[in-house]
């Protein structure tokens, strides 16, 4: 298991993702990117779709990527990495490459849950050997906090504003992790930026499997969530503690919940610290809406517990 010391040693040997990018101060995305890259000792090629990470790390002629990296468009990162991986397989067969190379996608929730879902599903079904990391910050942050299918119910987004008639996003968030798991790929997990060593461990476990691997990482956006810029870790941690974002794995179809909060912390505790949910604590219908959000969190948690019970590692 890669300890923090091991990760640090690897970064001292060679920085894979440098400073000098123009992501917001306090952005959680680089924490995930650096941890994932440091958790893979082999050479890595990375693809990213359009998004905050891409725009802020690759402004010509500068780039924060000190590993081979490619961006093509918004909806196709999984297809692009399919091509890179296919070329690798042929060139290895032809004896033109000897090194073991690993393939990673870093994509936002827009490029994964929404516009990139078809390309992702195709690449998963075809069985390419790559790790797809979704930096899920729960909205289209790069274009100005528009709602995505990952945006939680009631959250304010610029295309789902809190209005007199409709209080933020009316729909529940999509459960993409389960949709990916339904592809029957060898490794699927949820992680959070507040638990980076857990993430590093998951990456290491994932890389033991040949084929597609997927990790959905809750990645705080202080700007879009309207929280203080030093709050990324605390925010994600509270999402885990309230069971809003369970840390779990589906390894070869077997469920394992990595962390079960001992106490039942109401989701309200997480919601009330974020500007995007402020209206729930101001408007009269807020109480009822919070109850609905809690009911959905509970429903998903219970379902996950049942899945672990029925299809657990020991089961």
């Amino acid at each position: 298991m890669p300890s923090i010391k091991v990760l640090a040693e690897r970064e001292e040997r060679g920085v894979r993702f440098t400073g000098g990018h123009t992501l917001c101060a306090g952005c959680a995305e680089p924490m995930v990117v650096r941890t994932v890259l440091n958790a893979i000792p082999d050479p890595v090629v990375v693809a990213s779709p359009t998004g905050c990470l891409e725009v802020a790390t690759s402004r010509f002629p500068g780039t924060a990527w000190n590993v081979p990296w490619i961006h093509v468009a918004f909806e196709n990162a999984a297809a692009v990495i399919s091509g890179v991986e296919a070329a690798y397989k042929v060139l290895r067969k032809k004896g033109l490459l000897d090194k073991r190379v690993r393939f990673v996608v870093f994509a936002g929730d827009g490029g994964t849950y929404d516009i990139g879902l078809q390309a992702l599903s195709g690449a998963l079904e075809r069985g390419h050997d790559f790790l797809y990391v979704c930096l899920n910050n729960e909205a289209y942050m790069n274009t100005g906090v528009q709602r995505s299918s990952a945006t939680p119910k009631c959250a304010a987004a610029t295309t789902a504003p809190v209005g007199e008639a409709i209080p933020g996003k009316p729909q529940e968030r999509k459960d993409l992790t389960e949709i990916v798991a339904a592809h029957g790929i060898p490794y699927v997990a949820q992680a959070a930026v507040s638990h980076l060593i857990d993430l590093a461990n998951k990456v290491e476990r994932a890389m033991n499997y040949e084929g597609p691997k997927f990790i959905n990482v809750l990645t705080t956006c202080p700007l879009g969530w309207r929280t203080p810029r030093d709050s990324a870790i605390q925010q994600a941690k509270q999402a885990v503690e309230t069971r809003y974002w369970p840390l779990y794995e589906v390894i070869e179809g077997r469920y394992k919940i990595n962390y079960k909060p001992k106490e039942h912390v109401p989701v309200e505790e997480w919601l009330k610290t974020q500007g995007r949910f402020r209206h729930l604590f101001r408007d009269p219908q807020g109480k009822e809406l919070i109850a609905q959000i809690q009911a959905e969190v509970d429903r998903r948690w219970e379902l996950l517990l049942k899945k672990e019970q029925c299809f657990g590692v020991g089961g």
């Binding site: 090629v45 693809a47 490619i70 093509v72 468009a73 909806e75 196709n76 999984a78 297809a79 692009v80 990495i81 399919s82 091509g83 890179v84 991986e85 296919a86 070329a87 690798y88 397989k89 042929v90 060139l91 067969k93 032809k94 078809q118 390309a119 599903s121 195709g122 079904e125 075809r126």
Partner: peptide, 28 residues
């Protein structure tokens, strides 16, 4: 042939995969 055939799920992904493979260093 020794070609890797990628039976993609759309034309968009066809050319996207070609771009990835070409940038990777392959003839596509």
């Amino acid at each position: 042939v020794r070609t890797e055939l990628i039976p993609v799920e759309s034309e968009h992904s066809a050319l996207s995969a070609c771009i990835g493979a070409a940038a990777a260093g392959g003839r596509v």
